[in-house]
Each structure stands twice: as C-alpha cells, then as structure tokens.
C-alpha cells in the first residue's frame, strides 16, 4: 500500500492522508489501485471504497458522520460530501 495513506482500523471505509497529494494520481491501496482525483492535504481523508449516499463514514472503526452523496474510492471526504450525525448544538464553535 502507498505509504502516503494510512488505514487506522480494519473496518474503516476511509484512509487518512499522511503526506499531501498535489494532484490527480493513481495509487496502490489495500484492495488494489484507487484514483486520487486532486490535491488532498495531510490529515484529511480519502474514501477507501465506494460509499453510498447516507452511508456512515467509518474512521477509527466507528461512524464519524454520514456521506451526503455517493462517493467513489479515492475521493476526498470532507465538509462538502459528509456531515455530522450528532446533535448540532454541540458544534456551535464552527458551523460544519
């Protein structure tokens, strides 16, 4: 597996980016190749496999929110395509 991505837990459906991707690139992942479509910074997430609209995003082996549209493997997973499943009042410091 490419050393620039990290799988934190076997049941995760996202990888964590360890070293930035500067552009579109095809990389080796645990289950074959995935396409990173564009730049992704350190600490951000990319999809390990296709994730359905509304499906939980799993990191550390637990849900950290849900996809707000269908995602393909390698896609950057962030504010634009997932959301918190938690009560919003606990995230007042930043609107996410």
């Amino acid at each position: 597996m490419d050393k620039r991505i990290l799988l934190l837990h076997p049941s995760d459906n996202v990888y964590v980016v360890c070293q930035s991707f500067t552009g579109r690139e095809r990389i080796a992942a645990a289950e074959g190749e995935i396409l990173i479509p564009g730049p992704v910074d350190v600490g951000h997430k990319v999809a390990r496999r296709a994730i359905d609209d509304g499906e939980p995003v799993i990191k550390y082996g637990v849900p950290i929110g849900s996809a707000t549209r269908a995602l393909v493997a390698g896609e950057h997973v962030h504010l634009h395509n997932m959301r918190s499943d938690y009560i919003a009042s606990h995230a007042r410091g930043g609107r996410v």
């Binding site: 950290i64 929110g65 962030h78 504010l79 995230a91 930043g94 996410v96």
Partner: peptide, 12 residues
C-alpha cells in the same frame, strides 16, 4: 482550525 487540519465533524 480543526477543519483545516482535516477534521470534518465533532464526533471525528
């Protein structure tokens, strides 16, 4: 700053 650093949600 959490979001800049790649964190998306409170639970994350």
């Amino acid at each position: 700053g959490n979001a800049d650093g790649g964190l998306t949600t409170q639970e994350e």
